[in-house]
Design a protein around this nucleic acid. Structure first.
Length: 271
DNA sequence: ACTGGCTCCTGAGGGC
DNA sequence: TGCCCTCAGGAGCCAG
């Protein structure tokens, strides 16, 4: 669930609670996430002061002098801050006890998320090394997308969701950006003009920015660091809106599976 | 190099 | 009320 806006909303909420705090202790109640949480992470993160909370793609980076914890929220993960201890629920897998008496609590019912530890430059970690540009990176342009798409037959929607192409655009915002750009999600990536790709990059950035401003999209699980849902759900033009009238042309919106993912679009104004 | 398909896991919601 | 089925915001990995 968390796409870039949800991860960024979480990051912004965590910063005032984490930076400058020391990790007093780590409680891993369930180490079996997407990958097993390493004992090395627990050993080396304990006692460290968190210098900064950064984000690369949908990964959150807890930066310390000894190394960096690389956290992914998967589909249902959330990080919450607690000012005092409360009894953990069944899916509260990891707690960081902080030096000010607070806690950072990781909840993830489906356990598709992950926690990694690296002593060196996190951006060179194998999970991050091959990622494409951030949507806000000046390198993310129509020229860039057009070049990357050359010869590709894959539908543009899964192309846009490929983190090797551009990061952070997941199933919701890919549908939204394509609707705004008037591009059919099934159109082969290699058959879109540079000008249309330029338009698409602008819509990607705009929809992600609007979602961040609204605190993200909560469909069911997402909560920010304070436990609050995001409000961008009200502004979704197509995602999860099957049969509702298109906001532009009133045609009933369609839902089709493209690349194994539910996709929502207007069959008339997206070409 | 691409492409499509599978996989990990739990819970919500709909139909009967 | 309960059972069964389908679906869910990610993305690494594999075979062809």
């Amino acid at each position: 669930m968390p796409e870039l806006p949800e991860v960024e909303t979480t990051r912004r909420g965590l910063i005032p609670w984490l930076t400058g705090r020391r990790v007093r202790a780590i409680h891993v109640r369930q180490p079996r996430l997407r990958w097993r949480v390493s004992t090395r992470l627990v050993a080396e993160l304990t006692g460290q002061e968190i210098r900064d909370v950064r984000r690369r793609a949908k990964y959150l980076l807890l930066v310390t002098d000894a190394g960096t914890a690389i956290v992914h929220l998967g589909m249902t993960g959330s990080l919450r801050t607690l000012s005092a201890w409360t009894e953990p629920g069944p899916h509260d897998h990891i707690d960081l006890a902080l030096s000010d008496g607070g806690y950072l609590r990781y909840r993830d019912p489906r356990r598709f998320g992950s926690w990694h530890w690296t002593r060196t430059d996190a951006l060179r970690h194998r999970l991050l090394a091959g990622l494409g540009p951030e949507p806000h990176d000046p390198a993310f342009t129509g020229v860039y997308l057009h070049r990357r798409a050359r010869g590709r037959k894959v539908p543009v929607k899964p192309f846009l969701m490929d983190a090797g192409v551009v990061v952070g655009v997941g199933n919701i915002y890919a549908s939204e950006a394509l609707w705004r750009a008037g591009i059919h999600p099934r159109r082969p990536a290699g058959r879109i003009s540079e000008a249309r790709y330029a338009e698409l990059t602008r819509h990607c950035v705009a929809v992600l920015d609007e979602a961040i401003a609204a605190g993200g999209t909560t469909l069911r699980d997402f909560r920010d660091a304070a436990g609050e849902p995001g409000y961008f759900s009200h502004d979704l033009a197509v995602y999860d809106q099957r049969d509702k009238p298109c906001r532009r042309c009133a045609t009933p919106l369609r839902r089709e599976v493209i690349g194994q993912r539910a996709s929502y679009f207007c069959p008339v104004c997206q070409r």
